[in-house]
Structure formats: structure tokens, C-alpha cells
Write a protein that binds this DNA or RNA. Structure first.
Length: 652
DNA sequence: GTACCATGCAAACGG
DNA sequence: CGTTTGCATGGTACG
């Protein structure tokens, strides 16, 4: 959820081939490339939307075209205005400016235009502000990657800050159209309002908030759709259709993927069985006595530090893992395993799913920053929506074709080249730092946890979110550009704020890198753990020499720093990646075959963190060399063919 | 057929 | 002689 789709530009037109296209560029959150302001109308314009169930009731009855702030029907024009006590009804309010009959809004005073305000919630002023603040704290609010329909309704006091990315011709068109748009139609509001009503079940405030388009984009697109009211209306319909058909579906599938991934990852160590799974969470001392046992089926984990509802699993570590018996579908969303697995893996760490592989192919896919290519692909996703948007776009003027295509191609080239460059040098945020600094001074990164600004920024840069998301949202081989770093920082901030809302402690901001189900040879006295190649190459520093590099791994459970060596062996024409000097770590954590380790990177400090997770059968241990000699471990495979363990204990 | 990876095993090392 | 290191082999999953 942290990753954001950035539609920097939505262009539309008839391709020479007659093919319709709508284009978007995917960027890391808050990508510095964005020079045009983005807003989310749903919240920037109506920041105090309480919740969605309210959409229906008020709807038509409270639709008011002349109420303005003074209208009782229109309870609230803004979060600061007075309103009725009703909190769950919405009103469509038309606010007119100074030359209007109705009183203008204070905050609209600077806008010499008449504006339509849509779907304003009714609420108490204070409450509204609270809600506003609450939403304002949401990570999805950030400027990153969101569709901002606000432009459709003409925004107010931020016009001056907007930078129009339009060429001269378009600019002229815009000026012309600005006048037309300054008198938005009721139709526009109605279109949006009706859409809201019909989608109230499927779209949340966060969803709305997370969708943004640049104003210039909207204006440009609207002009190409005929301009004026009609153009805006067409564009609004297009966007709403896109949101409905793309965003919401993506959201749904993303949720399913996350669930499937989480459950699948859990299943990597044991097969799901409907009975209770005692999960042991070790305390920081790694002392078994301090362990907490929780029941996987509980909606809230018993660990006081980390009780969170099922929905928190959204955004949890994902990965290309499969759940025994097949992927979970939506009906499995509350699979008893998932939340527990979160807990099992890390009870108080904010998860930042980050996979450069697997099912994540949308904008929220983890591995955003580090693996921009994924997002490049996502960018094309837009082009793939010809069908969705094609029809309305058929009305577009031919003027938008060749020129637009040129620009689009240029953007794509820049985009791909940018990400290719990143890919070359940076597999991982931390890796990025390692590559540039640690090769000479490994201790700089992997030392005692000193977090240098450089490391923090760099790591967060790849973080994306991921993001995914920040996937961290946000990652690539050389140092990220300042913009990218900035983006990552923003994403990280969102993550933190999200964690805070969820009652998570923000101080830990870890990004999942990989996990490995331990084999006998991993826990033997050789003191080395074979790492899954794909994940190692993706998330750990690129190794030039087979001696590899020394990496300080902080044990999440004990806070102890383990100096391990990350290296590889030539194997056939490939490599085998190893983590050496793991003997003490394994012994200290009492890890045995079937347990697993999880490696994270601290997105703030860039340091690596490791956690050993115990998986134990309540009674008998897995017999000998469990079946399934080849457990394609880690996050990419469920590796569940082994024993059917029914209990899990977690170090902490 | 190929890639991955678990592990066998021989060579190297060191007490 | 026990331990460590590093390569090779072979089973499994996957394309």
C-alpha cells in the first residue's frame, strides 16, 4: 500500500495506428521528477471525509447547489466551517465566490472563480479537524503516486505553486479552458457523486486519497477530450472508470497477494492445519522463558507490543510464495495463519514488503525503488488499459497523437534508462551503500549500528517502497538521485506514520530482504548458511570476488552484532551464495533444521538485521532429513513439502 | 534441459 | 587428527 502510482502525465490521443492510449509514468513515491503539483481532491479538497458509509444517506437529499457555507443543507464547506451535528452525511455544496450570490468560503477568497464542492461531509468542526489530522497522518496521503482528481474541480489556493508542464500550445489551450472550467458544471459533481455512491463499498478514503493526478495533466487531458465542461466530464468519467476498474481491482488482488504471500511464507516452514498454532515469541533476551505464546486464530495478537487487527496484514511482507493448496483467494483473507505469521516473523517491526520478484507487478509492489524496472513495466500498464479508456478517448482530437507519442517515447526512454542505470549498481538500498562505500570500508555500513545520514538516505532510497512500496517504496545500484532519496524519505515517513497509527513503533523500519529455511547443513557445525541465490543477488550487495564481504548482522532478538561473511562459491556456471560465520548465531538462537532466518535491512541506517525463527513441532521433531530435499526456500517459494509442523516459536 | 541448492567429500589448515 | 574451506555431485523444481 505504500507504493504509489505516479501518474505524472496522463496523455491521451489517437495513436497513428488508431490505438487509444493513456499514459502514466511510474515513479517512486514523491518522485522528484514530479514538478507538477499533485493533489488528491478527495482529501485535499474534502479533508474531513469521515467515512464512506456516509456517502449514501446524504446523497441526493443533501445535494445543494446554492447552499454554500451558509446553507444548512450543506453542512460544511470545509473542515473549519461550522456545520450541523450530523456526522455521517454528505452534502454537495456549491460555493460561489465573491461575485456569487452565496457567501464565499474564507479559504476560497483568493480564488476568483466559482467552484463546485462535492461531497462534503457534515461534521462538527472540531471533529472534522480531528479527522483531517487523522487522515493527514496517513501515509497514503503523500504526494507520491496518487491520482488527484482535484483538478477536475478546480483547486483553490495552490494554483500559484503549480508548475504547468505544457508546451506553449497546450498552455494557450489551457488558459482558454481555464475560463471554461472556472464554471464547472453540476454534471461534473453529479458524475463524481454518483460514482462515489455506487462505489462506496469498494473504495475507501485511503483509496481516494491515494489517487492523484497532476493538475496540468488533467487540464491537458481534458482539453484533448474536447475541452471545457464536456472535456472535464469525459475525463472525470475516464478517471473514475480507471479507478474502479484498475485501482480497486489492483487493490483487491494486492490484498490477496499479500495474504497469500504471508500465508505462503509461513507455510514455508509448516503446513497449515486448522487447529491452533502455538506461536512462541521470544523476548529480547532470546530467553525461552520470556516467550509469549499466541494463538494464530486470534484476531489480535496477544503480544501487547504488537496487537493489530487482521487488516494489518495488508502490506505485510509479500513474496512469491505459494500457499499449500494453492493461492489464497479473497475468502481466505483471514486465514488464521497470516496475522500470526506477521507476528511470528516480527512482532514489532514495521514490515516493508520488498520483493523484486513474485506476483507484485502493480504499483504497490514492494521492490519499488530498488527495482524500478518493475515499475517501468507498471508504467506500461497504463498503456495496457486501452480497452478501459479507449472508448471515451475516441473522442479525442487527433492533435494529441504524434506529438504526444513523441513525448511519451522520450519519457519512456528516460525512464528505462534511469532504472537500468540503477539496476546496474544497486540491488538494494543497503547494497547501494555497500557498493559505493563498504567495499573499501565495510565497517562503515555494517558496524555497530551507527546510522550515518548517507546510509539512511541511501537505504531509504532503495526502500521504496516500496515500496514498494516504498516499497519504500522504494531501490537501484548506484546512489539514488537526491530526488529518489527524497522520495524514499517521504515514503519512509509515511511508513512511520502508518505504523504509528497502527500502534506500531516507528523506530524500527525494517525492510524484508530474504529468508531461508535452515537445512541440516546450515545448522551443522560448518557455520555457514546457503542463501537463496535469487534473493541474495537481488537484495544483498553484489559480490565481485568470491571471498565476498563482511557484513555485520544485528540480531533482532538479542541486539547482538554478528559479523558474518557474505560470499559465494562458483558452482557450475553459476554461484552459490553463503553466509558464513553463522555458527554462533545459530547456536545462540538454538536454531535447528526447519527453523528459518530472516534478513532485513534497516531502512534508516542501512545496516542488516537478522532474526532466527524457530519452527517446532509440539511433540516430535521432523524426522531426520525431512522429505523434500530441495526446498526452494525463502520468500520465493513456500517450501512446504517438508514436515507438517503445527507450532511455531519465534525468537525475539 | 537447466538452474538451484543441499550436501558429500577431498584438500587445506592448524593445534 | 579434528576442523575448516572450497569444490563437485546429484536431486528437485521449473521452464
Amino acid at each position: 500500500m505504500n507504493s504509489s502510482m505516479h501518474v505524472n502525465e496522463i496523455g491521451s490521443g489517437l495513436e497513428e495506428s488508431g490505438e487509444m492510449w493513456i499514459e502514466g509514468e511510474m515513479e517512486m513515491d514523491g518522485g522528484g521528477v514530479v514538478d507538477d503539483e499533485e493533489k488528491s481532491i478527495f482529501y485535499d479538497e474534502f479533508p474531513s471525509l469521515p467515512d464512506f458509509p456516509c456517502i449514501s444517506s446524504a446523497s441526493s437529499s443533501s445535494l445543494s447547489t446554492g447552499g454554500g457555507c451558509s446553507s444548512s443543507a450543506a453542512a460544511s464547506c470545509s473542515s473549519s466551517s461550522s456545520s450541523s451535528s450530523a456526522t455521517n452525511s454528505w452534502a454537495i455544496v456549491k460555493v460561489e465566490n465573491d461575485d456569487g450570490v452565496e457567501k464565499s468560503q474564507p479559504q476560497d477568497s483568493g480564488v476568483a472563480k466559482t467552484e463546485d464542492r462535492i461531497a462534503l461531509p457534515e461534521h462538527e468542526p472540531d471533529e472534522g479537524m480531528d479527522v483531517l489530522e487523522d487522515f493527514g497522518d496517513m501515509d497514503l496521503l503523500d504526494s507520491s503516486g496518487m491520482w488527484d482528481p482535484s483538478s477536475l474541480f478546480s483547486s483553490d489556493d495552490e494554483d500559484k505553486t503549480r508548475q504547468m508542464v505544457m508546451d506553449g500550445q497546450e498552455e494557450k489551450e489551457k488558459l482558454k479552458e481555464d475560463e471554461e472550467q472556472s464554471r464547472p458544471s453540476e454534471d461534473l459533481a453529479m458524475v463524481f457523486f454518483e460514482w462515489l455512491k455506487s462505489n462506496k463499498e469498494s473504495i475507501s478514503p485511503e483509496d481516494l486519497r491515494s489517487i492523484k493526478l497532476k493538475r496540468s495533466t488533467i487540464e491537458c487531458a481534458a482539453s484533448r477530450l474536447g475541452g471545457g465542461k464536456e472535456g472535464m466530464k469525459q475525463l472525470l468519467k475516464l478517471i473514475l472508470a480507471w479507478v474502479q476498474n484498475h485501482h480497486l481491482q489492483k487493490k483487491k488482488s494486492r490484498e490477496e497477494e499479500y495474504i497469500s504471500a504471508a500465508a505462503g511464507a509461513a507455510a514455508a516452514s509448516f503446513q497449515y492445519q486448522p487447529q491452533a498454532y502455538p506461536i512462541q515469541v521470544q523476548g529480547p533476551s532470546a530467553n525461552a522463558d520470556s516467550s509469549t505464546w499466541i494463538h494464530p486464530n486470534s484476531a489480535y495478537l496477544t503480544d501487547p507490543q504488537s496487537s493489530f487487527p487482521h487488516h494489518m496484514m495488508m502490506g505485510f511482507v509479500g513474496g512469491d510464495v505459494s500457499f499449500p493448496g494453492g493461492p489464497l483467494n479473497s475468502s481466505n483473507q483471514h486465514h488464521p495463519f497470516s496475522p500470526d505469521y506477521h507476528q511470528m516473523i516480527d512482532s514489532n517491526v514495521s514490515w516493508t514488503p520488498h520483493f523484486s520478484y513474485g506476483p507484485f507487478s502493480d504499483s504497490s509492489a514492494p521492490s519499488f525503488v530498488g527495482f524500478p524496472n518493475k515499475y517501468a513495466a507498471t508504467g506500461q500498464l497504463f498503456q495496457g488499459h486501452h480497452g478501459l479508456l479507449g472508448e471515451p478517448l475516441m473522442k479525442m482530437a487527433p492533435s494529441a497523437t504524434k506529438e504526444a507519442r513523441k513525448k511519451r517515447m522520450a519519457r519512456q526512454r528516460r525512464f528505462f534508462s534511469h532504472h537500468h542505470h540503477h539496476r546496474q549498481h544497486q540491488h538494494h538500498p543497503t547494497a547501494m551503500v555497500m557498493d559505493s562505500q563498504q567495499q573499501q570500508h565495510p565497517s562503515r555500513l555494517v558496524g555497530n549500528g551507527n546510522c550515518t545520514t548517507t546510509a539512511a538516505q541511501s537505504s531509504s532510497g532503495s526502500w521504496v517502497m516500496w515500496s514498494s512500496s516504498s516499497p519504500p517504496s522504494s531501490s537501484s545500484p548506484t546512489l539514488l538521485s537526491p530526488d529518489a532519496d527524497q522520495t524514499a524519505m517521504q515514503t519512509q515517513q509515511r511508513q512511520i506514520s502508518s505504523d504509528r497509527r497502527q500502534g506500531w513503533k516507528p523506530e524500527k523500519n525494517l525492510r524484508f530482504l530474504l529468508q531461508k529455511v535452515l537445512k541440516q547443513s546450515d545448522v551443522g557445525n560448518l557455520g555457514r548458511i546457503v542463501l537463496p541465490k535469487k534473493e541474495a543477488e537481488t537484495h544483498l550487495p553484489e559480490l565481485e570476488a568470491r571471498d565476498g564481504i563482511s557484513i555485520a548482522m544485528e540480531d533482532i532478538g538479542t541486539s547482538r552484532i554478528w559479523n558474518m561473511r557474505y560470499r559465494f562459491w562458483p558452482n557450475n556456471k553459476s554461484r552459490m551464495y553463503l553466509l558464513e560465520n553463522t555458527g554462533d548465531f545459530v547456536r545462540t538462537n538454538g536454531l535447528q533444521e526447519g527453523d528459518f532466518i530472516v534478513i532485513y535491512s534497516d531502512t534508516k541506517c542501512g545496516k542488516y538485521m537478522i532474526r532466527g525463527v524457530k519452527v517446532r513441532k509440539p511433540e516430535s521433531k521432523p524426522e531426520g532429513k525431512s522429505a523434500g530435499k530441495t526446498q526452494r526456500t525463502s520468500s520465493s517459494h513456500s517450501a512446504t513439502k517438508g514436515d507438517g509442523s503445527t507450532s511455531v516459536s519465534c525468537n525475539r
